[in-house]
């Protein structure tokens, strides 16, 4: 096995990230995102199980129903790309292997995965409430100087710092 490549310098990484974001604005007119695709994926899965209920639902019915293709959305394609790009980045840097990430004193795998799921669950709800996540609101809306996005970004950091002391065991 070859050596893992080091991460990019954060300022260089941020600069390239900014260029990608700028390119997205210039070419397609919108920024980056992630949670919107997760929502459509979930609604699509639910639609396969219970089409009538989903199509008639107040929230889900907006995305899925007869004559609507739940995956026909820019973010779905973009997140497909994020997956491919992330895989390429990891493999070409010698970082791709199956594993569970954790702090220096790893939790039992089931505990770490339970935390991962719980955190994901919270973020899924939060992203629907805030109309986006760190990519769609903080990064994209931040660069567009949207007032709500800046409020969102500050609150993300606030929430993280507030909760961090209670989760030291996981990360420190």
């Amino acid at each position: 096995m070859t050596q893992e490549k080091p991460f990019w310098n954060p300022y260089v990484g941020g600069f390239v990230l900014g260029l990608v974001l700028l390119g997205s604005f210039l070419v397609v007119g919108n920024g980056l995102g992630a949670s919107g695709a997760a929502n459509r994926l979930g609604v699509g899965a639910a639609y396969l199980v219970a089409p009538e209920t989903v199509a008639a639902h107040e929230v889900f019915g907006e995305y899925a129903g007869p004559g609507k293709n739940v995956l026909d959305d820019w973010l779905v394609f973009e997140v497909l790309g994020v997956f491919l790009g992330g895989a390429l980045g990891a493999y070409s840097a010698g970082r791709m292997r199956r594993g569970i990430q954790g702090g220096p004193r790893p939790l039992a795998p089931w505990k770490r995965l339970a935390f991962a799921f719980a955190g994901g669950l919270l973020m899924g709800v939060a992203a629907r409430l805030a109309r986006g996540c760190t990519s769609g609101q903080a990064l994209t809306g931040g660069a567009l100087l949207s007032a709500g996005s800046w409020a969102f970004m500050m609150m993300v950091f606030a929430g993280g710092y507030l909760a961090a002391p209670f989760l030291r065991r996981q990360w420190r």
Binding site: M1, T2, L88, S92, M96
Partner: peptide, 18 residues
């Protein structure tokens, strides 16, 4: 394109198969 890139990396840089 992407699988071809993976295979090229695997062959050229002798990375472990995934």
């Amino acid at each position: 394109s992407v699988p071809l890139a993976f295979e090229a990396l695997e062959i050229r840089r002798k990375l472990a198969f995934v």
